[in-house]
């Protein structure tokens, strides 16, 4: 029981921190522009594909460095020449633009890399068990994923709260005109934040690609959950996104690791069905099978009982 709990916690942390890397960029961009970037998860997918291509020639580590940079520059270009122009036409136009961009990136990925799954592998140097507990191994690559995600979180937190540029970003999010009047180039700041946000998504793709497989549907697989996290955490709240990411990562991980199912519950209630009964399928349901819908269930609960999200603020 203890081993299941420990490994479920570690795996939940890996997933949660990975989700945070995506959600942090998305929530920062939302704070600035007031619009959800539907193409955010597509930049995550691009990160994985760019890293795969770079790794074919120069190895995994070069991919780790260059793929997020390429994705970040691409994101900045999208903001500068796409979103900034569309912004003048209002939020609906921006939503439609990012929605279309998501489709465009998915089609482009299939066009350039093909529809099949890519053989993007973790580096050999991390192909060993980091530790063995209760006879079960925890891979070094997963430990690396935790390490890199935590370092990104700590760096991001320090930059945003301690550095001058972080203070400018915080102020520009709420008072862009005042910040511009003080002599700061707000459009450049917005472009930079958009670029960093997409680079973080790209980095998440680079480190997730070898574990969650690199295929054209990977943005859809994770994209919806990232939106759920941003809403549960509270739109625009970085701390909320962090809590919600870990919550969902752990929730899913515990659900997958558990062997609790409907039979136990139905037996407890003393219910029994004939094989031909329409509700007989309930017997086959268990927690691991419903794990994928748990984030959405949590989203519904949060929207009912706390519509602003865990740490979100109501607009005045």
């Amino acid at each position: 029981m203890l081993e299941i709990f420990i490994f479920a916690t570690l795996n939940g942390l890996v997933t949660g921190l990975l989700l945070f890397m995506l959600a942090s960029g998305l929530t920062l961009i939302f704070s600035m522009m007031g619009v959800l970037n539907f193409a955010h998860a597509s930049f995550y997918m691009l990160g994985a594909y760019f890293a795969y291509s770079v790794s074919l020639y120069f190895g995994f580590w070069m991919g780790l460095i260059f793929a997020p940079l390429i994705v970040g520059v691409l994101g900045a270009v999208v903001e500068r020449y796409g979103l900034r122009r569309v912004h003048q036409s209002g939020h609906v136009a921006e939503l439609v633009f990012t929605f279309g961009l998501a489709f465009l990136i998915e089609e482009a990925v299939q066009f350039f890399w093909g529809p099949d799954t890519k053989n993007y592998q973790a580096p050999d140097i991390l192909d060993f068990p980091l530790f063995t507990l209760f006879g079960q191994e925890f891979s070094a690559y997963r430990g690396f994923m935790i390490g890199i995600s935590l370092s990104i979180f700590i760096t991001l937190y320090h930059i945003l709260t301690r550095s001058r540029i972080g203070i400018i970003i915080q102020a520009a999010i709420t008072h862009p005109n005042t910040v511009a009047n003080l002599g700061h180039n707000v459009p450049l700041i917005f472009m930079g934040v958009f670029g960093v946000g997409t680079a973080l998504a790209g980095l998440a793709g680079v480190i997730a690609g070898p574990v969650l497989t690199t295929f054209p549907g990977m943005s859809i697989a994770l994209g919806s959950i990232v939106f759920v996290i941003v809403v549960i955490g509270g739109l625009g709240s970085l701390a909320g996104a962090f809590i919600a990411s870990l919550l969902i990562g752990l929730l899913q991980s515990y659900a997958i690791a558990s062997d609790v199912g409907m039979p136990e519950l139905l037996n407890l209630l003393g219910l029994e069905f004939e094989r031909s009964h329409p509700l007989n399928d309930l017997w086959t349901l268990n927690l691991p099978r419903i794990a994928p819908i748990l984030p959405f269930l949590l989203l519904v609960l949060v929207l009912i009982f706390r519509p602003t999200g865990l740490l979100g603020k109501r607009e005045e």
């Binding site: 001058r164 203070i167 400018i168 915080q170 102020a171 709420t174 005109n177 005042t178 003080l182």
Partner: peptide
């Protein structure tokens, strides 16, 4: 238009 969630010192740093 002071920045309410930033400290007095941070507000001044922003002016530079």
């Amino acid at each position: 238009d002071i920045f309410p969630t930033l400290t007095v010192q941070q507000n001044l740093v922003l002016g530079m």
